[in-house]
Every structure is written in structure tokens, then in C-alpha cells.
Amino acid sequence: MAGDVTWQTSAPLPRRQNLADGVYEALKELIMDGNLDHGSRVNLDEAARQLGVSQSPLREALVRLEAVGLVTKEPFRGYSTTPLFSKEELYDLFEFRFVVEPWAAARAAERITPEGVAALKAELATCPKAPTGQYYQSYRGLSAHDERLHDLIQSLSGNDHMRRALARTHCHLHILRLRYRGGMGTAALREHRQLVAAIASGDAKTAEAAMCAHLEASRDRLLPVYDDPTDR
């Protein structure tokens, strides 16, 4: 763990039964904002001291962070933060998403019900506008909405195997670790509205095209990060 880590997080840690959740969110925020160097070892003693907690909730938090792919555990080395996606890994991720998600959008449109439409619109309402800040605390709501919407579309498609496969990628967290800007969120929410309208229409081809367009735009918004390494 780097010596110049900024340990201050956006909210104080809770002191009773939710302490483990608070430690998890604090470490997640530090990783998402890049305050813990990518690929660096997490020093448990230092982390516990700086966060003012015992190692028990810290270890519990690290197990949860490992499950979402933000840290890895190696024998005799302990936990380290995962490196950012390389350009090749980003392309691989989107190649997978292009296989799974347009199909799911088309299938969801074919199977759509009034209840499904209501669920999609309710999810859109949870994030009516994009955040403007560049730190995780400001865009965490958008990240959660993005994940929930794509999971809901998978659920409406009726294929639980595909749904679980997409969930295991934790793609939304890894993508937002690269860089968030306000313009990204505004464009993503616009595409989400178009996607929901396409699925709600019941037209499978339109829904598939809307998802493809959303994924292409999402990928293209991230590629400039690799052209300017100082922007990461």
C-alpha cells in the first residue's frame, strides 16, 4: 500500500452492527478513486490503523471486494488491488457483452409485459440525471443504476445462465474505475431511456439495435483513456 494514500472517505464509519458494511464502502471508495495504487498490496495493519477498526471487519470487507473483482488474494502475499483493465481486456469485455446483451434486449422485448415495462421505467426513475463529480461518492448512484438496469434486462430475457455470467464480470465497476466524467453519465442515461423505450415497444430488432448502439457508445467513450495515460 502506497505511503501517500489519502484515507479520508466521504462519510464516517458506523460504529455498531453496520461496521463491516462501512469498512467495505470505505475501501471500495478508495479503490474506485485510485487512492490505493492499482495492483498494490493492501497492508492490513496500516489499513486497520488508518480506518480505526480491527482487522476482523477489514478482512470481511476484503473478502467482499475480492468477490466483485476489486482485490485479489495471493498465497504468502495477501490482498492486492486489481490492476485497471488494459485496452485488450476492455475489448474482450465488450466482445462478451455484444454476445450476451443485445440478445437479452431482443428477448426481453419479445417477452415484455406491462409489469416489465413498469419495472424498467421505475429503474430509470432512480437516476433521473447524471452526476457531475469525478469521484466515486458522486457517481456511485449512477453505477448502481447502470448495474441494476442491465441486470433487469437480463432478468426479463428469462435466461438465468446469461444473467449470472454477466453479473460475474462486474463490468460496471471495472469500467468506471478507468474514468468517469459528467458527459459520460448524461450520454449513458440518454441511451438507457432509448433502450427502455425500444424494449417496451415489444420490437425485438429495435431493442437489439438499441443495446448494440449503447454498448458501442460506452466502449468508444472509454477508448480515449488509453490514448492519454495521464487521464487514468
Results as ranks from 00 to 15, higher is better:
Ala2Trp: 01
Ala2Glu: 12
Gly3Pro: 01
Asp4Ile: 02
Val5Ile: 15
Val5Ala: 08
Thr6Asn: 11
Trp7Tyr: 13
Trp7Gln: 11
Gln8Trp: 12
Ala11Cys: 13
Ala11Gly: 07
Pro12Ser: 11
Pro12Glu: 14
Pro12Gln: 14
Arg15Tyr: 01
Arg16Asp: 15
Gln17Thr: 13
Glu25Phe: 09
Ala26Leu: 06
Leu27Met: 15
Glu29Gln: 14
Ile31Ala: 09
Ile31His: 07
Ile31Met: 14
Asp33Gly: 11
Asp33His: 11
Gly34Ser: 08
Gly34Met: 08
Asp37Arg: 07
Arg41Pro: 00
Val42Lys: 08
Leu44Ser: 03
Ala47Asp: 03
Ala48Pro: 01
Arg49Thr: 02
Gln50Ser: 06
Ser54Gly: 13
Gln55Ser: 04
Gln55Glu: 10
Gln55Lys: 14
Glu60Asn: 10
Ala61Tyr: 04
Leu62Lys: 08
Leu62Tyr: 04
Leu65Tyr: 03
Glu66Gln: 12
Glu66Val: 02
Val68Met: 12
Glu74Gln: 14
Pro75His: 07
Phe76Ala: 14
Gly78Arg: 10
Ser80Trp: 02
Pro83Ile: 09
Leu84Lys: 15
Glu88Cys: 02
Glu89Trp: 03
Glu89Pro: 05
Glu89Gln: 15
Leu90Cys: 04
Asp92Pro: 00
Leu93Ser: 13
Phe94Gly: 02
Phe96Lys: 10
Val99Met: 12
Pro102His: 04
Trp103Ile: 01
Trp103Ser: 00
Arg107Leu: 00
Ala108Asp: 05
Ala109Leu: 06
Pro114Asn: 09
Val117Pro: 06
Ala118Gly: 05
Leu120Lys: 04
Leu124Met: 15
Ala125Phe: 09
Lys129Ile: 03
Lys129Gly: 00
Thr132Lys: 15
Gly133Leu: 06
Arg140Tyr: 01
Glu147Val: 06
Leu149Glu: 05
His150Lys: 14
Leu152Gly: 01
His161Tyr: 02
His161Asp: 11
Arg163Phe: 00
Leu166Val: 01
Arg168Thr: 01
Thr169Val: 07
His170Met: 12
His174Phe: 11
His174Ser: 10
His174Lys: 15
Leu178Ile: 13
Arg179Gly: 04
Arg179Ala: 07
Tyr180Trp: 02
Gly185Arg: 04
Ala187Asp: 06
His192Leu: 05
Gln194Trp: 00
Leu195Val: 12
Val196Arg: 10
Ala198Cys: 01
Ala198Gly: 00
Ala198Thr: 01
Ala198Lys: 05
Ile199Lys: 09
Ile199His: 08
Ser201Met: 09
Asp203Lys: 12
Asp203Tyr: 04
Ala204Cys: 08
Lys205Ala: 15
Thr206Leu: 15
Ala210Arg: 05
Cys212Lys: 11
Ala213Glu: 03
His214Ser: 10
Glu216Asn: 12
Ala217Thr: 08
Leu223Glu: 06
Tyr226Met: 13
Tyr226Gly: 05
Asp227Arg: 05
Asp227Thr: 02
Arg232Trp: 02
Arg232Pro: 00
